[in-house]
Structures are given as C-alpha cells and as structure tokens.
Amino acid sequence: MEMPFSSGNYLRGVPFPFCAGCGGTTVANVFLRAVHELGHRNLQGFVFCSGIGCSSWIPSPHFKADSIHTTHGRSIPVATGVKLMRPNLNVVVFGGDGDIVGIGLGHLIHAARRNLDVTVIMVNNMIYGMTGGQVAPTTPQEVKTSTTPYGGFERPLDAVSLVASAGASYAARVTTAHIQQLKGTIKKALKTKGFSFIEVVSQCPTAYGRRAGFKNAGEMLHWMRDHSISIREAQKLSENEVKGKIVIGDFVDRKLPTLTERIQSTIKKASKDGPD
C-alpha cells in the first residue's frame, strides 16, 4: 500500500535557488521524504513560515502548500498567530541560524517556554549565508568571517540546550551528513505535541566552506560525519573532550501540556463562568 514518493505532490516545480552542494537542498528533500513516510500524500494541512535568508527559502515558494515568508527573524511570532487561530494545521518553521537564533532568538525561547505546538527546523550553516559570510551566533571562534577577519571573539551558542531548558517538548540536533537520522528526527518532531525544535548542522560551501578551509561540500560533509558524537556518548565525556564536536541526538523528548491546550481550556473556562 506504500505509495511511491513523487516530488510533484509536494513541490510547485520552481527550482531551488541554492548553490551547488548547499545543505539547504538536502534539508528540503529529506523533509519531504519524512512527510511522505508519515503518510501525507501532499502538503495540505501544513503551513510553512520562514524568515529571511537562504534557509528561509526552503519552503517558500517551493513547497506546494500555504507558506508565509515573513521578515527576518519573525517567522515564529507569525507562526504563533497562525497556530492559535488554526490549531488543526501542522505549522512548520524553517530558517537559518542567523534568522532563528540571531535576530529571532527571543521569539524562539518564548515559543519553547509556551510549548507552542509548531516545529522549528533551524538550518545551522554557522554563517550568514545570504548576506555573504558574516559571523553568526553559531560560528566557531577560530573561523574567520568577513566581519571577524582576525577570528571571532565570542562563544558560539548551543541552541538545542537552550530550547530544551526553556520547556520544549522536543529538541534535537542532527547534521546533513546523517540523512537517515535527519529523516527520523523530522518525523519525530512532526509527531510531537508541543514545541519541537531541530537544529540541522548543514554545509554552506559558498559563504562558510571556503573561509573555514574546506575545498567543497563533500569535504564539509565528511568533516561533519567525523566530528559528530551522540548525546549519549557525550554525556560520558568531560567538557574538554566534547569541545569541537557536534553533539547529535534527542536532547529532550517528553510530554508536556501545549499552548493550544491551555488556551482552549481558558476559553472554555471564560465562556462558562467569566474571570471572577
């Protein structure tokens, strides 16, 4: 009974504008495979919100679905309004690390705290790709960028731990070098009740790769594969031993009351007896 995957069910046919070897294309394709494997024949019932940046172009206008391409960093507030008024839709946010944890970080943490039932997929290419390679809140300190030509002076952010501690139902990290795991993680996130967050460490050969000393996307993928360790392994190691590694896996996966549940019960209460 398994239907074969056909991209025409999910894509409008507008070609992705990404550079050759860009991880954004991988994330888009794996996402659609995951949706297919969950039994969705098309993207009806989904709404995609994204901000500004290469990664924000993953759904818009490529996915054959409703999509709202918002201002830079503001996809999560827009998704909040959408989800609260249409609780039955699957609301998925795509964005880059600059979009989600640079300019938009406050919104991410508050959405996690509220346990808003949306899925946020952050493509962490460790750089501001669209604007040409400036330092991001996720850039490793030793990598020189166009705005940190002597190397960085800030510590990169661990977005997954932050989201986990803020109260999300689900938070995970994975890379574009782990396709099967990425697909499984997306499926899990989409099935989660409450806030689900995936950080996909990804390759931007154009704006990041050459600055970090990689010859091409293939080298970057090898590096990611070789430098990833599972969270279970990482927990057995000292902080120093984990340094420089990409810790992947589920950081939290739990059942918590969601924002829509709480709001619906407030409405029920208010319409019955008022606030006094």
């Binding site: 918002t70 201002t71 827009v78 998704a79 909040t80 309004g81 959408v82 989800k83 919104h107």
Partner: peptide
C-alpha cells in the same frame, strides 16, 4: 507578527 499570522 502574531496578528499578521492570525489575519492570514
């Protein structure tokens, strides 16, 4: 942002 989402 939220009212824009709600409007759509």
């Amino acid at each position: 942002g939220a009212i824009i989402g709600a409007s759509w």
